[in-house]
Every structure is written in C-alpha cells, then in structure tokens.
Amino acid sequence: MLVLLPPSETKHPGGDGAPLDLAALSHPELDPVREQLLGGIEALAGDVPASRKALGVSAAQDAEIARNAAVRTAPTLPALDRYTGVLYDALDVRSLTRAQRVKADRRLAVGSALFGLVHGGEPIPAYRLSAISHLPGLPRLRALWRPVLGPVLAAAADGLVVDLRSGSYADLAPVPGAVTVDVLSERADGSRAVVSHFNKAHKGRLARLLATTRAEPADVVGLVALLRRGGFHVERARGSAALTLVVPA
C-alpha cells in the first residue's frame, strides 16, 4: 500500500542531515526534472521581485526565497519531518513508535512540486515551490512532471494506492485506479457540505491509521473495511475507487 500525501507550503526549518544528495532519493528517473527545478529556483532567488511573483509570496516571506538560494547547501530532514501544517499535525509522526515510523516511512510518500515524489524517510531541505508556481524560462510544472512522474506512479498503482493529494498536485501526474477520498460534514438534519480547512486534519488522521496499521489491504474493499474498523465513517459507491469520508458538522 502506498499513501500519497500533499506537501505543505510551510516547512520546519533547519535539520541535522547532510545537504541534499539526489542519489539519496528514490526514483532516479525523476532526477533530470529535479535538477532543472533546483537550478530554476536557485537562479530565481537572485531576483527577489521576480521570485515573489513566481512563487506567490510577499515581502514578509522573503526568507522563503533565501531558502531557495541555499537549497543545495542547507541541512536536510526526513520528508515527513520537514512538512508542517494541519495535515501533518494530525499525522503527528513524532509520536510514532520506532516500528510505526519505519512502517510510515515505507507507506507514505509526498507529491512534491520540486522533487516529484519523496518517500517519508527521504532527506530533503526546506524550499518554496508549489504546484501552481511558474518558473521563468521553464515549462509549467505539469508539463515537466507528467511525462516522467506519470510512469512512476503508474508502476506504483500495481498495488493499492490511496491518493490524498490536493487537486493541483494530483494534476501534476494522476494515478490510474488510485483510491481518492473526499471529506463531507454531516449536519444533524442529515444535510452535508464540503469540508474545507479541516479536510486536511481528517486526511491526516486517516493517513496515520494507514501508516501504522498491521493490515495490508490489497484493494478498495479491504481498505474500506479497515477504515471502518478504525472508526471512520466511509462510504463508497458500488464499483468506484472514490471514497467519501463523512464527519460530524
């Protein structure tokens, strides 16, 4: 089972790992695009106004541009420790036992605008680049990533893939046959609404269960049974890989 997570714009600073080494990351077939994008954000960091525009940051966030300038020399952290925010707070990998963390590093991967795909324990620096960023002189990220990342994810789809990425990241390279999850809140009168901000928290808790369970569901039927045993209210239309996670309003 592979669980795909979205990255976060916010990231823990610093780290105690050696500087970035692409050889330490899996899927070397992604390295040519990784190199292009690393070079792109490094070069762009020399032009602060252009960086603000391309990265969608304000003057108050110029430290993000400085991170990009130092992306090859800065210390690294494992990917699951680097990303922060609502989803990662709910996932809370730092509270996992050693055995659980080994399992989480194997089962969880992050769809990154800069690295394409990084597994949970792989060392990465802090950086700023989102799926909707457009670096001057380079094609759109979707055009860069889809031809190379698509086959990597398609190969992963030989097993069960649970795709929790947000829309812009899923669009970089969809996964054929992956299970997707939408979150709806249910009011006392039975009416439902899309969950926006706390959607990430619910997906983080779901990812934590999938990262730590002893079960190895082979298909969507087994996955639904696992989630229901874990206390999640999950619905599935017959024959569909799209799940609905229903939470109280």
Score class of each variant (00 low, 15 high):
residue 3 V to M: 02
residue 4 L to E: 03
residue 6 P to F: 03
residue 17 G to Q: 01
residue 22 L to H: 06
residue 25 L to D: 00
residue 26 S to W: 05
residue 26 S to G: 15
residue 29 E to A: 15
residue 31 D to W: 10
residue 33 V to F: 03
residue 34 R to S: 07
residue 34 R to E: 09
residue 40 G to R: 04
residue 40 G to A: 13
residue 42 E to F: 00
residue 44 L to G: 07
residue 46 G to M: 03
residue 48 V to G: 12
residue 50 A to M: 03
residue 51 S to H: 05
residue 54 A to C: 09
residue 55 L to Q: 03
residue 57 V to H: 04
residue 63 A to V: 09
residue 69 A to V: 00
residue 74 A to Y: 04
residue 75 P to I: 01
residue 77 L to Y: 09
residue 79 A to F: 02
residue 79 A to L: 02
residue 80 L to R: 09
residue 83 Y to M: 05
residue 84 T to C: 10
residue 89 D to Q: 15
residue 90 A to N: 09
residue 96 L to R: 13
residue 97 T to I: 07
residue 97 T to R: 13
residue 103 K to R: 13
residue 104 A to L: 09
residue 105 D to F: 12
residue 105 D to Y: 15
residue 106 R to T: 13
residue 109 A to E: 07
residue 111 G to C: 15
residue 113 A to L: 01
residue 116 G to S: 03
residue 120 G to M: 04
residue 122 E to N: 08
residue 125 P to T: 07
residue 131 A to M: 10
residue 132 I to F: 14
residue 134 H to D: 14
residue 134 H to Y: 08
residue 137 G to H: 01
residue 139 P to Q: 09
residue 140 R to V: 11
residue 140 R to D: 14
residue 142 R to D: 14
residue 144 L to M: 05
residue 144 L to A: 04
residue 147 P to Q: 04
residue 149 L to P: 00
residue 150 G to P: 05
residue 151 P to K: 08
residue 151 P to C: 03
residue 152 V to I: 01
residue 154 A to N: 12
residue 157 A to T: 03
residue 158 D to T: 15
residue 159 G to K: 10
residue 160 L to H: 05
residue 161 V to S: 06
residue 162 V to T: 06
residue 164 L to R: 05
residue 167 G to N: 14
residue 171 D to Q: 15
residue 171 D to C: 10
residue 174 P to T: 00
residue 176 P to S: 03
residue 185 S to W: 12
residue 186 E to L: 08
residue 186 E to D: 04
residue 187 R to K: 13
residue 187 R to N: 13
residue 188 A to S: 13
residue 189 D to T: 09
residue 191 S to D: 12
residue 191 S to N: 12
residue 192 R to P: 04
residue 192 R to H: 06
residue 195 V to T: 13
residue 196 S to D: 13
residue 196 S to T: 15
residue 201 A to E: 12
residue 201 A to D: 11
residue 207 A to R: 08
residue 208 R to P: 08
residue 212 T to W: 00
residue 215 A to P: 11
residue 216 E to Y: 08
residue 217 P to R: 05
residue 219 D to I: 09
residue 219 D to G: 08
residue 220 V to R: 04
residue 222 G to F: 06
residue 223 L to T: 02
residue 225 A to S: 14
residue 226 L to I: 01
residue 226 L to G: 11
residue 230 G to F: 08
residue 231 G to H: 06
residue 232 F to R: 08
residue 232 F to Y: 12
residue 235 E to V: 14
residue 239 G to E: 01
residue 239 G to T: 07
residue 242 A to N: 13
residue 247 V to D: 02
residue 248 P to A: 10
